[in-house]
Amino acid sequence: MTNRFMGPPWQMDWTLKAQAARDALPEHVRQMIDAARAELVTAGDPYFRGIDADAGLPEDLHVEPARSSDPKGSRVLYFDNGHGWLTYTFVRRTEDPQIVVEQIFWQ
């Protein structure tokens, strides 16, 4: 056993409310969410810290902190050119680090 952090791909869990909201959306929106999920779980740093840290994401995705006063807190991932978003946190643990999706919205 080593003492270093595990790397991508990260585990991802959804709160029950977020999963229900995702499942209620149309199929084409769920496909966009799945594409956004793929970007998140393979990101080297799911916090996307620094200037233009999310520059490697597709053009219709953008990540920013939910609150600028909490740099290690929730993040907002905008998808579908800002028509939808999801909030998530990244729990960095030595064993089993994971992304937890807390809310999802699309209009």
Rank of each mutant, 00 (worst) to 15 (best):
P97H: 02
Q103R: 13
W10F: 11
L77M: 15
T15Q: 07
A35T: 04
I104S: 05
A38V: 05
L16V: 13
W14H: 04
D54C: 06
A36L: 06
M32S: 07
S74Q: 12
R30Q: 15
G73K: 06
L16T: 10
A38Y: 02
N3P: 02
V29F: 10
W10P: 12
R22T: 12
P46V: 14
D54Y: 08
V41M: 11
V63T: 02
Q19R: 15
H62F: 14
F48L: 08
E64V: 13
Q11W: 02
I51H: 06
Q103K: 13
V29S: 12
R22W: 12
P9N: 04
Y78C: 12
L16H: 08
N3T: 11
F105P: 04
S74P: 07
I51C: 01
N81I: 03
Y47H: 13
D80I: 00
R4F: 03
L16Q: 10
Q19L: 14
S68Q: 10
K17C: 04
N3K: 08
A24E: 09
D13V: 04
A53S: 14
A21L: 05
P58N: 01
Y88L: 03
R67D: 15
A35M: 08
A24W: 14
L86T: 05
A53E: 06
A38T: 10
M12N: 05
N3I: 05
R92G: 01
W85S: 14
G84V: 12
P97W: 10
I99E: 04
I99K: 00
A36G: 14
M32W: 03
G82M: 10
F5H: 10
R4P: 01
E59A: 12
D70V: 12
M32Y: 00
F5D: 09
I33V: 15
D54F: 06
P46G: 05
R67L: 08
V76S: 02
R4M: 10
K17R: 12
R93T: 13
G7M: 05
F90T: 05
S74A: 15
G50F: 15
Q103H: 15
T2R: 09
V41K: 09
P9A: 07
Y88S: 09
A20F: 11
T89Y: 01
P26H: 13
P9S: 08
D60C: 04
S74N: 14
F105A: 11
A35Y: 06
L25D: 02
P65C: 01
H28Q: 06
G44E: 11
Q107H: 07
I99S: 03
W10I: 06
E64C: 14
D34C: 02
G56K: 11
F105L: 06
A21H: 10
R37G: 07
